[in-house]
Amino acid sequence: MMKALRIHDLHKKYNDTEVLKGVSLSVNQGEMYALMGPNGSGKTTLTSIIACTNTPTSGLIEVFGFDSVKDAKKVKEVIGYVPQEKFSSPLMTGEENLLYFFRLQGMSKQEARKMSKELLQRMDLARDANKRVSQYSGGMRKKLEVATALLPGVRLLILDEPTTGLDPSTRKKFLSKIQEIRKEGVTVFFVTHIGEDAEIASKVGLIDKGILMIEEKPEILRKKTGLLHVISIETSTKNDLVYRTLENTINNGKLVETNKGYKFYCKEPEEILEVMIRNLGKIGCKTTRIETTVPSLEDVFFKLTEKELR
C-alpha cells in the first residue's frame, strides 16, 4: 500500500533543546492517524514540519513520495493543513473566507464559488454561509477551517488539536465529519491530547519528550499495555498516609497520583473496591468518588509515562 506519510529518524533542535528525537512513523493512504501526547511533547512541531511550515534539523519526511524539504511545493499541493488557532477572519463571512483561501491558490472566481458552495453544504454550513464568522460557534468555525483545507487534489488532511475548546457533543459531530472525509479517500493525520478523539483513528502514535514511544491500532495498544480495568478514586484528603493505605490494598499493580486523586489498573476490581473504601475509612479518609472504567487511550498513555495528557 502506498504511504501517504513516511517519517524516518526525524530530529528537530531549537538552539540546544532537542524537541524531536529521532521520530519515525508511517501512515498508509486512506488511514486515519492520531498522534497523542501532552503539552510540550513535540506534537505541534512534528505537525508543522509535515505541513511544510517548519524544517527538520535532520531526518527524512515524505508525503506521497515527495520530500517535504526538497519538494515542498509539490507537498503543499497535496496537503490541507488546519492549525490549532482560529485562523479564519471573524470580519468576513464563511463564504468570503473560503473564497479567499481558494482564490489565493489560483482558483478562478467561478470555480472558487462552486467549490465553496459544495464544501459549505458538506460541512452543514450552507445556511450560515453569509454570516460573519464572528457569529459562528466554535464548532462551526472549526468546520469552516477544515473546509479551507479540502481543495481538490488534497490527499492528506493535517489537523492540529482540532477539537480543543469544543463541547463534547460538538466534538462528536465534528469528528464524524472528519470520518466522512476519510471515507471519501482522504488520509487524515491529527494531533490530540483527548484519548476519546483518538479512538476513531485506525492507528495511534504516542509521543512524549520528542520520542514516539509506540504506534498501533487502539485496541492493540490496550492489549499491549495489559490494561483491563481502571479504578479512579477521589478522597477527602490527599497525603502520604492515604497513598500508602491504597498501595497496601492493591498489592500488585501500580498506584499513581492524579490531579484529583489516585488511579490504578487491575484485573478484578470488584474484590478491591470494598476493601479499599473500608481501609480508607479506618484512617479517617472519606472516599468522595470512585469509578471503574474500561481503559481509555489516555490511560494507556498514563500507564506508559505516568503523565496525564490533560
Partner: peptide, 10 residues
C-alpha cells in the same frame, strides 16, 4: 495562525 496556514499552501 493565518501565516502558518498560508505557509502550508502553494
Amino acid at each position: 495562525g493565518l501565516y502558518r496556514k498560508i505557509m502550508s499552501m502553494p
